[in-house]
């Protein structure tokens, strides 16, 4: 059921008015106010905005004894990722081969030539649902879409 804005305040006002008129006792008024307040947080939560997220956010909050406090706050438009993926189609195969060789040297067994552009686009589309939380004693990392 949808609640109209200001209904909780209206109910609270009515309870206080009934108390002032002597229609209810203080205990009854307290019970009623408690019941109204219990409903309030649910009503106060804004309806989640529908539609697709527009930004990928990376928030890092770390406190290292060597490098001190580190804060990173990056917001990347998802459109930018999609545009980058479309541009990645034009990377020449020989460049991908060289990138593969370098990745293999670093121990990363990924064949970039096998990754198709539509797969990358699907990956970017699937980022909408991504939420990654890493919470350690000194470090907090959050990756999410908004």
């Amino acid at each position: 059921m949808k609640r109209k804005p200001g209904t909780v305040n209206e109910q609270r006002r009515q309870i206080l008015q009934m108390l002032a008129e002597g229609k209810i006792t203080t205990d009854e008024a307290e019970r009623l106010l408690t019941a109204v307040e219990a409903e309030e947080p649910e009503a106060a939560v804004p309806a989640r905005t529908k539609g697709r997220p527009k930004f990928l956010r990376l928030v890092v909050d770390a406190n290292d004894e060597y490098s001190g406090e580190t804060k990173v706050n990056i917001r990347v438009p998802l459109k930018l990722l999609r545009a980058g993926v479309k541009l990645a189609v034009f990377v020449p195969p020989q460049a991908l081969e060289r990138a593969n060789q370098e990745l293999h040297k670093q121990g990363v067994a990924i064949d970039l030539t096998e990754i198709k552009p539509n797969q990358l686009e699907d990956l970017v589309d699937a980022l909408d649902e991504l939420t990654l939380d890493v919470d350690q004693t000194d470090t907090k990392v959050r990756i999410f879409c908004e």
Binding site: E69, R75, L87
Partner: peptide, 23 residues
């Protein structure tokens, strides 16, 4: 096509934000 791709990246930039603070 490559120029169009670069243009698309340029068009998609609004909203981007990079903030780094260390020491």
């Amino acid at each position: 096509k490559t120029l169009a791709g670069v243009g698309r990246i340029f068009w998609a930039l609004p909203g981007a934000r990079f903030e780094i603070e260390q020491g």
